[in-house]
């Protein structure tokens, strides 16, 4: 019975009720924090590491990214007479080492994080899906 004789005014409950009411009425800095994901998206950091992208003109196909990839995600494959990296997203850990080691700064990471797919084969992103052309974009 000690708990009730000490708190017979129920001040704790009333304080709690006031706090929750402030949340209901959005008094003070208490916004609704949920993001309705498929309809609206959170703002990503510019340093977000999502799906890779390779600059078609800058890449020299040197294979340094292939060598440095800790999971062996990247392979260099031939695409339209030139050599470009091919990334297996299923193994990638999005560490960004390939971006750091690229001597031509051709490898980028985009903000695309919706990479779920139905088969393991479709997780292998060949140059046809990774390449972008800087001149065209600018």
């Amino acid at each position: 019975m000690a708990w009730i004789s000490k708190n017979w005014t129920m001040s704790g409950i009333i304080k709690g009720l006031i706090v929750t009411l402030k949340h209901v009425l959005h008094i003070g800095n208490r916004p609704t924090v949920t993001v309705q994901y498929p309809y609206e998206r959170m703002k990503l950091s510019p340093r977000f590491r999502g799906l890779h992208a390779v600059d078609e003109n800058a890449c020299i196909g040197c294979g340094i990214c292939e060598v440095n990839c800790p999971n062996g995600t990247i392979r260099i494959v031939k695409h339209n007479t030139r050599w470009y990296p091919q990334v297996n997203i299923g193994m990638c850990l999005f560490c960004g080492i390939c971006v750091d080691v690229c001597p031509m700064n051709a490898m980028k990471m985009t903000g695309n994080y919706e990479l779920a797919d139905y088969t393991r084969e479709s997780l292998i992103y060949g140059p046809d899906r990774l390449l972008f052309n800087k001149e065209v974009k600018q």
């Binding site: 929750t20 949340h23 209901v24 208490r30 916004p31 609704t32 924090v33 949920t34 309705q36």
Partner: peptide, 13 residues
């Protein structure tokens, strides 16, 4: 809805 508003969510939308 009330639970959601207290917990800074939207609830069913």
């Amino acid at each position: 809805k009330v639970v959601a508003m207290v917990q800074a969510r939207y609830g069913p939308m």
